[in-house]
Design a protein around this nucleic acid. Structure first.
Lengths: 224, 224
DNA sequence: CCTGTGAAGATTGTCAACAATCCGGAGATG
DNA sequence: CATCTCCGGATTGTTGACAATCTTCACAGG
């Protein structure tokens, strides 16, 4: 747009940034389970770097709240008890409501709603095929897209962390989708509310959706 | 509460954590102005530590979004243009609305509203005395208290960063309180809305307050 | 049996030195 | 005069080593 040939500035990434992403991924998919100690020497050897860059990556995760640091003891993947899970969903509601509200009032509301409809359709497809893994992926993709479309760097960055935590406790609790059709319907209603632009409905849909998801998780936690 | 003698776990802090706070303070009050390069060697010497812990602290600030990292070039205090300031206030609205909503629906709503009334009273006192510095402090204390009272660790952590950014651009723009009385009144209305528990009013009051604050900042930016 | 002592082992916290990269200017070349 | 090349200085990125701390276990004493 602004530059003559429309080039993006070259984007190279620091080592600690790469390691941060890799560790975050590991926490998300359960390869680094909640409560596990993160050994500096061991992980540094795995990544093939020295402890310096690895420690820097750790500090990022500490700041993000995914890792807890105990002085002279080590770093541990944060464990989520029920209160934490409730707080997680409270915060997700805050962020996603704001994102949806912003999107619904922006120029790209119609286009955004269309994108979200497509995501919901992908969920429906996965649900129909009985592929619960694909359904979960599509579910996350929907929420990721929702916040992305709002175009707010801060909301997006905060949401990233929250989604890691969400996925973390879903894998930990082995939560299964009980009513896939209901899930799809909830997401579709959110997309439609954005298309229509009714704030009140939008807020209610998101709030209910989060409440449902939270209830499922808490139930799974009590049973499992 | 839960433990027999009610002791808290001993809380010692890591060096990088201390340095992070000190740097954050420096960014907030303008001692490290926006766009400034943060020299590792220089700062390490000032703190009397080696570059290791200092770099760890830097990574935390990068993750927080207060500092921007350019590979092999250095670290720079993030600059806030108008779009960024708008995003900042959009996000503050999201977080503080959620906090106020949570507080208003909690058991401690009445007590919380009282605490906020006291904060607003402190603002009124500062405004009456014409002490704009004290007014700004009381203003921040009000918002800090509001989010603290919600009792959500995630909202609180996110809000912390946002307040640093807010203060950063206020000091950068030398924003002065134009209508101190109006300011106090806006805060009082928020406290009362929490006491009453009317969600709709609460949302509107916070949204308007943020919009007002944003407008003042943007105007100051265009003039200054 | 419970408590206190002490050393071994492992892990984290810190540091100073080395390697790689970038920026600026002097000088050569056309 | 413009451009290219090269070098010195400075800064960041990374490493391996050292110091401090914590945990675990065995063992002696009451």
């Amino acid at each position: 747009m602004s530059s003559p040939a429309g080039f993006q500035p070259v984007h190279r990434e620091s080592t600690s940034s790469l390691i941060t992403r890799a560790l975050r991924e590991g926490i998300m998919n359960g390869r680094l389970p909640a409560g596990a100690q993160l050994s500096e020497a061991g992980l540094a050897a795995e990544f093939g770097v020295s402890r310096g860059p690895l420690r820097e990556a750790m500090q990022r995760l500490v700041q993000e709240g995914l890792v807890r640091s105990e002085l002279n003891r080590g770093l541990f993947v944060k464990e989520l008890d029920e209160a934490e899970i409730r707080d997680l969903y409270l915060t997700r509601t805050a962020i996603e409501t704001a994102a949806a509200y912003t999107l619904a009032h922006s120029e790209g509301a119609a286009a955004g709603a269309q994108r979200l409809r497509e995501r919901a359709a992908a969920m429906a497809e996965a649900a129909a095929a009985g592929d619960l893994n694909a359904l979960a992926d599509a579910d996350f993709a929907f929420h990721e897209e929702l916040v992305s479309l709002a175009g707010s760097p801060r909301l997006h960055r905060m949401h990233e962390t929250l989604m890691v935590e969400t996925r973390m406790c879903m894998t930990a609790l082995q939560e299964t989708y009980f009513d896939p059709e209901d899930q799809v319907a909830e997401h579709s209603r959110i997309a439609e509310a954005i298309a229509v632009g009714d704030d009140e409905v939008l807020r209610r849909e998101i709030e209910e959706h989060m409440q449902e998801a939270l209830d499922r998780l808490v139930r799974a936690g009590h049973q499992g």
